[in-house]
């Protein structure tokens, strides 16, 4: 990477130091107070910047919240790089456990990805899933490939944790079990079609 200090491709995010401070402070405050009660003034004080600095970086509350959701997903809930599509159930289990440890932040990610095109991107790891499935099971038909990638992307998300907890009252380990189990079921038809 020409002139950059961060290694190409592995940078955790594309935020600068000021934005990092703002987003980290906002995450702390969301966990302490919830999303409704956090003012720009409070974030500014916690981040050690002026309120105007926040506005310069994030013109509106919605802009800030969407950037926050992306930052949370990358920094608080990062995925281990799966080597194989068949590792996804493990990845998903681990993700569910990490969401359960930080419930307020998991809700922020889940909700902001449900806003349509004006929201946070709902399947940030879609391309990665497609690359893995194309490398391992290249013979798949288009409709089957799409269904498996889409189902795994859906399961590998904060909304899974929210739905299983909220609709079924599941515990951390039950959520991880149920989500991983569903991912195994999705993968069943292609287990013996590698290569």
């Amino acid at each position: 990477m020409p002139g950059g200090s961060e290694p190409a491709g592995v940078s955790a995010s594309d935020v600068n130091r000021t934005q990092e401070a703002i987003l980290a402070a906002y995450a702390e405050l969301i966990e302490e107070l919830g999303t409704d009660d956090v003012s720009f003034r409070l974030i500014a004080r916690r981040a050690g910047v002026g309120e105007r600095t926040i506005f310069r970086n994030y013109a509106t509350r919605v802009d800030l919240l969407l950037a926050e959701a992306v930052w949370i997903e990358r920094r608080i809930f990062p995925r281990e790089d799966a080597a194989s599509i068949f590792d996804m159930p493990l990845t998903i289990r681990a993700a569910m456990e990490s969401y359960d440890r930080r419930p307020e932040l998991a809700h922020v990610v889940a909700e902001t990805t449900m806003r349509g095109i004006s929201g946070a991107t709902p399947s940030p790891r879609r391309a990665k899933l497609e690359a893995m499935i194309d490398a391992e099971v290249p013979s798949l038909g288009a409709a089957e490939r799409r269904a498996i990638v889409a189902a795994l992307a859906h399961l590998d998300s904060a909304a899974t944790w929210v739905a299983f907890r909220r609709e079924f009252g599941m515990t951390r380990s039950d959520i991880a079990d149920a989500a991983g189990w569903a991912a195994e079921a999705v993968l069943d038809p292609i287990r013996f079609r590698v290569g």
């Binding site: 990805t113 399947s123 992307a153 399961l155 899974t160 299983f164 079924f168 079990d177």
Partner: peptide
Amino acid sequence: LRRVAAALRYFASAQFWARMRTGF
């Protein structure tokens, strides 16, 4: 029973529709 119900419920949800529409 709970795993099947949870998976079916989640694939039938508005959240599933929203992710498929926006993300795919």
